[in-house]
Amino acid sequence: MHRPFHKGRSRHPRARSFIILFFALIGLATLAGPAFAHAVAEGDKGYIQEITGIQLIPFLYLGAKHMVTGYDHILFLLGVIFFLYRPQHIATYVSLFAIGHSTTMLAGVYFDIGINSYVIDAIIGLSVVYKALDNMGAYQRWCGFQPNTKAATLIFGFFHGFGLSTKIIEYNISPEGLVPNLLAFNVGVEIGQFLALSAILIAISYWRWKPGFWRHAYTLNVAMMVAGFALTGYQIAGLFATSAA
């Protein structure tokens, strides 16, 4: 339920300024180091490793913090809702994404399904690329068909969930109270997602009323695509660096 467009890039000075700022923010994120890239702050990790039993509030906080500061998840959500106007359509796609990442996050941690964090984060970066290209109508032009957007949102939700489970496994949390703590973390993720999504919707809804929306929308999706490639390249570089060490 999106509206991919086929208009050319805008050369408006404000669009260029916005994209420069966009790239600067992504650059700061990707250059911030492995701890930020994998969203496992040393203070949080140390605290979680020290506590045992049911600790709902700390895990609720960590789940919300991860989603709000998870720029890869936010970029994908931005792409998903970029051309969604009706609340029911937004609710449908966000629900599919939530079902996907909740399923693999819970199953991944409970069954200790370990996936290399660089590999899964590279795939998450590619999900941003996929959605940006989808918004630009690339698949219709290149392949002559439109992929099922709902299925893609659910499938990439599964990958994002494995990204979440990888972060939790890195905490080396105590098995005591594991299930309640996982559920609290997942609730926190949904709260963080709601907060991030609300901010995105407010901003993009305001932008849609501006006459320059269609002039700049293509440019923003190009920037989002490049950011996805940058995130993927960063993770692949990290994978090779750790393998060579």
Rank of each mutant, 00 (worst) to 15 (best):
L28A: 15
I123A: 11
P87R: 14
L31C: 11
A37E: 09
V94D: 03
P58H: 03
T30S: 12
Y206V: 08
Q49P: 03
V189Y: 02
N116M: 12
H216M: 12
I54W: 12
H89S: 05
R3Y: 04
A98W: 13
W207M: 11
L96K: 09
G233T: 12
A217W: 05
G137Y: 04
G8W: 13
K45C: 06
F97T: 02
L96T: 03
F240S: 12
I51T: 05
Y61G: 01
F36S: 12
Y130D: 02
L126R: 09
Y234A: 13
P58A: 04
G192W: 00
A107P: 04
V222Q: 07
F5V: 14
I173H: 03
N181E: 01
K45M: 09
N181V: 07
E176G: 07
Y234E: 08
T103W: 08
Q55C: 05
G233M: 13
G108T: 06
A35Y: 11
L60A: 03
S95V: 13
A29M: 15
I74M: 12
A39T: 11
G33N: 08
S127Y: 07
G238I: 04
V119K: 04
I99Y: 06
L28Q: 09
K150Y: 13
I48E: 01
T92W: 15
I51L: 11
A35L: 05
T242E: 15
L31N: 14
I19A: 06
I115Q: 01
I99E: 06
F97P: 01
L183H: 00
I236Q: 08
M225K: 07
M224K: 04
L77N: 03
V40A: 15
Y206T: 06
G27F: 03
A199Q: 04
Q235D: 10
F145E: 13
G63F: 00
Y118H: 15
F162V: 10
A244K: 10
